[in-house]
Design a binder for these strands. Structure first.
Lengths: 360, 360
DNA sequence: AATGGCTGTGCAACCGGTTACATGATGGCT
DNA sequence: AGCCATCATGTAACCGGTTGCACAGCCATT
């Protein structure tokens, strides 16, 4: 019946060896306050000698509490998530929980499947940047406590980034350096995160009387940024704000290929701060503190789990502009093709609100 | 007794509703071959209507098979691991397993704790780049099937990288470009991976009659590489092989600060290929295919789990030199301080074999 | 018609804990 | 001394599945 021999002793063996009942052994590990200190000591000694460890599975079955939580992300390899996962992990096990990690590979169906499969083994879920539609998210939330990161669904506890403040700070910084025409290099058009960032950029640009052009990169990665660089070089701009650090880094590489120098020829601002100072020159970016998001999500979830009821929490993680070395004053004689004939810039800014999100 | 209401129906409710015994419902989901097709159909219909999903915890308790495996890594945020985790995840769930992820935060004690805690909930372990000493690894392996990645302990199934071939190819490449004096910028001195790479570099340098100098970076990250750049600039070398891509990238940034151009002034080779073409210029590196390692480890583990016995497998993942743009012919008039007075180069090469490893 | 083998299903024990309730011992109080 | 509250521990039911065994029904064989 059993697969691999576990070798682990059970509560009964400990009970026999210690000359007490199974209940007493159980209480030694779960409700020691009910026992005589002397008894506890004896059971502990025997347990130690036998190498007894309470079986979590059995405990979970009888209590209904598995001691596990699930964390589902769309793509572990996206550098936005590892710090988040790491922080969540650390906080979870401080609270006595182990973490099941799921990678949905950006597929809503896989996300659904993972949640269903894990449902019976975990007490609650943390869903980071879910790709699932709202209805299905709500369905899962009805079964088990669920906390969202980077998704704003009313009625569910959620952790969001203060994108607006970060983007505004970035654009204010550019304005103060005297940039007057800038670009926003957008991520996936259907992404909730991109919508947020783009809208924030538009509002901030208005506020500081800056002319903003939107350039699509489509994919949130280096390669897309690199491709967008060619487009940027043709625009009459002196600075660009990228969807994220990866895109920013790609833009830098693409412009370097064209012989441009940063920040002399153009200023670049990233988002997320996942590359820290590893770019050359070190990237000015908006830090989104994804680790804080992970930590707060766990905190919210454990609160829900102990209180036993969900509250409509909406927690906002502050963002912060980190000025490094990719932003500076625009050149007197800009290298950009202000006057040159150019392919028409993409100034249309998509306003549609997609029902499904993609990419943090 | 129960915490959050699960709302999930049990096998008994399905049995009653379908007018069969609990055993029959159970068999519908675990041994359908024993039942009449007609019965299966009826039970399935009822189960569907009620939203019944077999409770994994109960199943695990009675069968001893949890359907989970644990994957423990020293640091999720190290870019070497996410692809590995991702691949492991994908293969595990193809084989019907869910993955518990543990991050030991580079601490042997945390690693020990995680393994102990997860032991009762998983059928087997994958330990990537463990920080635990051999004795404790063996102790855990005695309880549950365990597969190692990046650690060579006899008697246990393990997945290793063909470091020697990769480093040799890198140095052969440099030799063919006419480099005669190069440096190896090492990682953590106590690291198993670093030992391997350094030894391989020494042997390969001998083979190609190249003079090799070892320069320590100590930590496997960008900052350490950056610091090492100052040291490198003072040495009479024309190329450097770094412990990993992160260090290589740091070296590039540090040298760029000094006004050096790559590969004109110096050639740089990384290891792991975790940055792909995101550096500027794109980094020549040895690809270690950590994703393959993850996939193979899962394969080994599921084999052990199904066969029920451990074998002394030693699987080697091939490595591959990927030539991008940071390597080239050495300059006629090298920029390095061949003749200049210099702080004495670190030519001593540590030979001690530490008992504990650090850092993949 | 009796025998035997199959097939499909049910019964009940079991996995390893937890916990409501029962019980016996102890000690303080009237 | 008698009563009752309190404390420490034991008894046994339960969590939700799985599975060895028993058994009924059916068909084929002799």
């Amino acid at each position: 019946m059993r697969g691999f021999p576990t070798g682990l002793p059970t509560i009964s063996q400990v009970a026999k060896a210690a000359g007490v009942s199974r209940a007493t052994v159980s209480r030694t590990f779960s409700r020691p306050d009910l026992l005589k200190p002397e008894t506890i000591k004896r059971v502990h000694e025997v347990a130690e000698k036998l190498g007894y460890v309470p079986n979590q599975v059995a405990r979970a079955l009888s209590t209904g509490r598995a001691g596990n939580i699930a964390l589902v992300v769309p793509d572990i390899a996206n550098p936005f998530f590892p710090p988040l996962i790491r922080a969540a992990q650390a906080h979870a096990d401080q609270a006595g929980y182990a973490v099941f990690l799921g990678d949905s590979d950006e597929q809503p169906e896989r996300e659904d499947m993972l949640l269903t499969k894990m449902a019976t083994q975990v007490e609650g879920f943390i869903l980071a940047s879910p790709r699932l539609d709202e209805k299905r998210v709500r369905a899962h939330a009805a079964r088990r406590p669920l906390v969202l990161i980077n998704r704003d669904i009313e009625g569910l506890p959620r952790v969001l980034m203060d994108v607006s403040a970060g983007i505004t700070a970035a654009i204010e910084h550019l304005a103060s350096l005297n940039h007057r025409r800038i670009a926003y290099v957008s991520g996936p058009p259907a992404s909730w995160a991109n919508q947020q960032r783009e809208q924030a950029a538009i509002r901030a640009a208005e506020k500081f009387a800056i002319h903003l052009t939107a350039v699509p990169a489509y994919h949130p990665n280096h390669e897309a940024g690199r491709r967008a660089a060619g487009e940027l070089a043709k625009l009459p701009i002196t600075a660009a704000v990228a969807f994220d650090d990866l895109v920013a880094q790609g833009i830098m590489a693409g412009l370097a290929d064209l012989g441009w120098h940063i920040p002399q020829d153009i200023s670049i601002v990233g988002f997320d701060d996942v590359l820290a100072a590893t770019t050359y020159p070190p990237l000015t970016t908006v830090a989104a503190h994804s680790d804080d998001a992970g930590a707060q999500a766990v905190k919210l979830l454990t609160e829900v789990l102990s209180k036993g009821q969900v509250q409509d929490q909406r927690m906002i993680i502050p963002t912060e502009l980190i000025i490094r070395a990719t932003t500076g004053k625009p050149a007197k004689r800009p290298r950009t093709a202000f006057a040159a004939p150019r392919s028409k810039p993409k100034v249309e800014i998509s306003q549609q609100r997609p029902e499904r999100t993609e990419t943090q």
